[in-house]
Computed example of a mutant assay.
Amino acid sequence: MTEKQLRVAVIGAGHWAVSSHIPGWQRDPRVEVVALADIDKEALKAAAKDFGIERTVTNYRELLDDPSIDVIDVATGNAMHFEISMAAIAAGKHVLCEKPVNSDYTETRRAAALAAAKGVKTKLGFTFRFAPAIQYAKHLIDQGFIGEPYIFNGYEQNSQWLDPQTPLRQAETDADTSVIAVSSIEGYGAPIIDIMHWWLDAPMTAVVGTMRNFVPERMVRETGSMHRMNIDDGDMWIAEFEHNRLGSIQSSYVTVGNFPGIEARIYGSEGAIIVRLVEERGICQTIKVAKKDQVEFEEIEIPEAFFPEDGASTEDWPFLFYSNLCKDFTTEILSGDSVNQGDFVQGALVQETINAFEKSFRDRAWCDFPLSGSSAQAGMGRA
């Protein structure tokens, strides 16, 4: 076996690929990024030079038949996620894909089923699941620190598009401006929904909530002109779970605050945990805990074991959190066992939750969950 045990090809050379994916993989000494693909030749050339990647292609399919490539990392725009993921899985590659795999949860589930049949592993870009503070909190929950879970409160909110002059992709608009289109809850709510399911660790049974369009006129990135965008830029939800557990979600990118704007709180019979993933005072994460007999929350240190090599909370969060994601996926693949957290099964569950949230808003009523029978939550325990 060579010193580099895992060979990765990254599809996409845009901002998120160069700020998180490529450096995240290259941080791990077990991994070599051997190829890069993008239809934008200038972006492709620049990224390859910056990261020392020798092989570049404009057609990703050229990489699928290469038996030396172990992992395909899909870091393209949303429209290509499903196509590339399915093609890579069919070719027998492990796949990391940015969210969502598909806006239809049944298609994401189909991709998960194909991966299981092919014997390959998958992972969604649930970046914040892999923040050291979030991982440590989950460890504490599993060790019984909070006792029986009661309530989860999740927030993903920042002021990225509070200013209507900040350009937003045309893909975020909807042709029928009389109908509010899903935006924040899918693009920004997904990571905190993932954490909610993971921490509460119980089947969800019903949801209710609402969406709002607070800033109706926005700058369109592709044209540079203002356009009517009737999109969800803020929303609030309540969810019921088995075992008498409750969850709530608030997602918005027009709420004053810094990136990444994540806060996850869980309260139980014995204690509580609050994790903040917000760049403030030179750090990107904090964890505070309290017990029922010591109700004042105190900040605690995150053990080194939950960080990537030489990692620290003073690093930029995209690099730190994604380094942990890549490290985790590498370990899962090389281990050969069945462990595979944050995979396409979990992605399908999160997407179905988003679809249920939207249905609740459209119907102006509680929505039963799952949407399509008990099979929808298969794999909950291993997510």
Score class of each variant (00 low, 15 high):
residue 11 I to E: 15
residue 16 W to G: 10
residue 23 P to N: 08
residue 32 E to V: 11
residue 38 D to M: 06
residue 51 F to R: 10
residue 58 T to E: 11
residue 63 L to F: 05
residue 68 S to K: 10
residue 71 V to F: 03
residue 78 N to Q: 09
residue 93 K to W: 14
residue 93 K to P: 01
residue 98 E to L: 13
residue 111 A to R: 03
residue 112 A to V: 03
residue 119 G to F: 08
residue 121 K to F: 01
residue 125 G to H: 11
residue 127 T to C: 10
residue 136 Y to Q: 07
residue 140 L to A: 09
residue 145 F to W: 06
residue 148 E to Q: 05
residue 149 P to W: 13
residue 161 W to R: 11
residue 165 Q to I: 00
residue 167 P to L: 14
residue 168 L to T: 09
residue 171 A to Y: 02
residue 173 T to Q: 07
residue 174 D to L: 12
residue 180 I to P: 04
residue 185 I to K: 01
residue 187 G to S: 08
residue 192 I to N: 11
residue 192 I to R: 12
residue 199 W to Y: 15
residue 209 G to Q: 08
residue 210 T to N: 15
residue 237 W to L: 01
residue 254 V to D: 11
residue 258 N to H: 02
residue 263 E to F: 08
residue 267 Y to I: 15
residue 267 Y to M: 14
residue 270 E to N: 04
residue 280 E to F: 01
residue 285 Q to Y: 06
residue 289 V to S: 09
residue 299 E to D: 12
residue 300 I to S: 13
residue 303 P to H: 10
residue 306 F to Q: 07
residue 313 S to G: 10
residue 314 T to P: 01
residue 318 P to Y: 14
residue 326 C to V: 00
residue 333 I to F: 00
residue 342 G to C: 03
residue 343 D to E: 09
residue 343 D to A: 07
residue 346 Q to C: 04
residue 347 G to K: 15
residue 348 A to T: 09
residue 355 N to I: 06
residue 357 F to Y: 06
residue 357 F to S: 11
residue 364 R to E: 12
residue 370 P to W: 03
residue 371 L to M: 13
residue 374 S to Y: 00
residue 378 A to W: 02
